[in-house]
Amino acid sequence: MTFHATNNFEGPIPQVIGKFKEFRGPNAFTRSIPSFIGNLQQLESLDLSSNNLRTSEPNPNEHPTSIISDTFPEGCWLQTLSLNQNRLEGKVPKSLGNCKCLEVLDIGNNQINDSFPCHLKNIAKLHVLVLRSNKFNGHIDCPRNNNGWPMLQIFDLASNNFSDAIPATIKGNKLELVKIPVNNFEGPIPEVIGKFEALDALNFSHNAFTGSIPTTFGNLRELGSYSNNTGLCGPPLKTMCGLPPAKEDSPSDSETGSIIH
């Protein structure tokens, strides 16, 4: 059973959503996400994107610790969680790792200040991960993560504060789209990314990558995808490897909003 709130539905999120498997409420709710959300056993899809939701604070003197109640139980059935374009801050709840059926996680365009969610590394069914336009920071290399997300197709980390090198052991045979512009990634671009057979689009612009663009990238060589990395060289950039950097005139990746429709 699906509940779809319309633009005429205002106020807090009602407890009645616990009776539904799918709940969609764009442009409908204000205030904060109630604590009972994580305890809803039947809920499989929750889409609260494009609202004015904020993180609930325990009291005015405490900074929010989690963007949504950290109460997802073992055996959680949640498959889709979309909270894109709200005013959420805090951290990605640790208990979300209990949702082994999760396929879509879209928490882009918020104010989330956290590290890369390595605690979700065992969710093997994850297809879509959107963290864009937040305040995520640090490296994206998860220790003891041998399998990665084998089903991942969309990987969007654009416009955050991620840094360090992309691990050369990165896996993604099903990846179709990789967007990581406007961060602080550095070091060489791993050649293995160009060998991902399903990869159709990428954007590495506005970082601090160095070295030559791998020849394995084949047709994935649009100029704007690599611009504003002063240490990068080789086609399609104007800078040839071994020569001083040339000036690039390409726009940044400034798109906003959810890539899940």
Rank of each mutant, 00 (worst) to 15 (best):
M1C: 13
T2M: 10
H4W: 03
H4A: 10
A5W: 08
N7E: 15
N7D: 13
G11N: 10
P14F: 03
I17D: 07
I17S: 06
I17C: 03
G18F: 08
F23A: 01
R24A: 10
P26I: 04
F29H: 05
R31D: 14
I33W: 01
P34K: 08
S35C: 08
F36W: 11
F36M: 09
I37K: 03
I37P: 00
G38W: 10
N39A: 13
N39K: 13
L40W: 09
Q42L: 15
Q42K: 15
E44W: 07
L46S: 09
S49V: 03
S49Y: 01
N51I: 04
N51Q: 09
E62N: 09
I67S: 01
S69Y: 03
F72R: 09
F72P: 05
F72S: 05
G75R: 04
W77D: 09
W77N: 14
Q79F: 01
Q79D: 04
L81P: 01
E89T: 13
E103M: 11
N110Q: 08
N113A: 06
P117Q: 02
C118H: 05
L126V: 11
N134H: 04
F136T: 00
N137L: 10
G138P: 00
D141Y: 10
C142Y: 06
P143Y: 11
N145E: 04
G148N: 07
G148Y: 09
Q153F: 06
Q153V: 09
I154M: 15
I154N: 11
F155D: 05
L157Y: 00
S159R: 14
F162A: 08
S163R: 11
S163T: 13
S163P: 10
I170W: 08
L175K: 04
V178I: 15
N184K: 09
N184E: 09
I189W: 07
P190I: 08
V192L: 12
I193K: 03
F196K: 02
E197S: 15
D200A: 15
A201M: 11
N203F: 00
S212N: 15
S212F: 06
P214L: 03
F217L: 13
N219V: 15
L223N: 07
S227H: 03
S227N: 06
N229C: 07
P235T: 10
L237V: 06
P244I: 01
E248S: 08
S252M: 01
D253A: 14
I259Y: 13
I260M: 06
I260Q: 05
